[in-house]
């Protein structure tokens, strides 16, 4: 099931949704009857068209939103029973808009949580250097401000910031969605090698099947607030489930319709 061998060390799910529902304050139900488990060290991709409830599902994990029914458990403990600040400090969060603090340098963006957690200055300094290297950024960028960076560099800083306090869980909401195709491809590759080294439990949101197939150890397909199926990338491409099949078909059409070089 899970690609990583480490996944077998501890079988208890790191994140678990039990009969979770979410209704907006205006009474509009969005998520209904969600049951889902995320295992240690796996990358679970939430795939679905926009408006299907992926972001909402992600925010239910770090309690940016609270379920209106059911429970979300992190490390076996219902999130409603944990201190929300403590919960969030243990979960890295990366969003498409990055949301870097524009008034802070790259270094200060990255070191904010370690600083708040009162790490010693020396440890913070080495950590920032280590993280910049980890996400493929030159140390000289540490003193730059976010507006002095390219989109790809900003997203890398976003990842470094999320990893700063070494959380075991990483939530990523279409982190590469706003990047050009080449940069996105490169960041996906770096994500894979990073994940191989760090073995975080990752929940990754995307609407792009190609990205889901490439990065996910499992793909959770969502539609209109419901979880349709959870499949490995290999299973996904063979699935007879109508929506999954439609995705797979659209994916194949993308190749079939592409103009080809005439073969000599």
């Amino acid at each position: 099931m899970v690609g990583n061998m480490e996944g077998t060390a501890s079988d208890a799910p790191v994140i678990e949704f039990r009969h979770v529902g979410y209704t907006w304050p205006n009474g509009r139900p969005l998520i209904t009857g969600l049951n889902l488990e995320v295992g240690r060290g796996e990358t679970l991709v939430l795939l679905g068209r926009s408006g299907s409830g992926k972001t909402t599902t992600l925010k239910l994990i770090n309690r940016l939103l609270n379920p209106t029914c059911g429970k979300v458990l992190v490390n076996g403990v219902p999130t409603a029973e944990t201190d929300v600040i403590h919960l969030r400090r243990g979960i890295g969060y990366v969003i498409q808009d990055v949301g870097l603090f524009p008034h802070y340098t790259v270094a200060r963006n990255i070191e904010l949580v370690p600083k708040i957690e009162n790490w010693p200055a020396e440890r913070i300094r080495t950590r920032v250097a280590e993280l910049l290297e980890l996400v493929g950024l030159d140390v000289s960028l540490a003193s730059r401000y976010p507006h002095e960076l390219s989109g790809g560099q900003r997203q890398r800083v976003g990842v470094a910031r999320a990893l700063a306090a070494d959380p075991a869980i990483l939530l990523m909401d279409e982190p590469f969605g706003a990047l050009d195709a080449l940069t996105r491809h490169q960041l996906q590759r770096e994500f894979l090698s990073l994940q191989k080294r760090l073995n975080k439990t990752v929940v990754f949101v995307t609407h792009d099947l190609r990205e889901a197939l490439r990065l996910g150890s499992r793909i959770a397909l969502m539609d209109a607030g419901r979880l349709i199926v959870v499949l490995t990338p290999q299973e996904f491409l063979r699935s007879r489930e109508p929506l999954a099949a439609a995705y797979a078909q659209a994916f194949e059409d993308g190749f079939a319709d592409a103009p080809r070089e005439p073969t000599p």
């Binding site: 600040i85 603090f101 524009p102 904010l112 949580v113």
Partner: peptide
């Protein structure tokens, strides 16, 4: 203030006071 910035801050575990004074 850019909502994405506030959300990122809240998501990484800043308290409401830290969010107010730091961001």
């Amino acid at each position: 203030v850019d909502p994405a910035v506030v959300e990122a801050g809240r998501g990484m575990g800043l308290t409401e006071t830290q969010l107010l004074f730091q961001v």
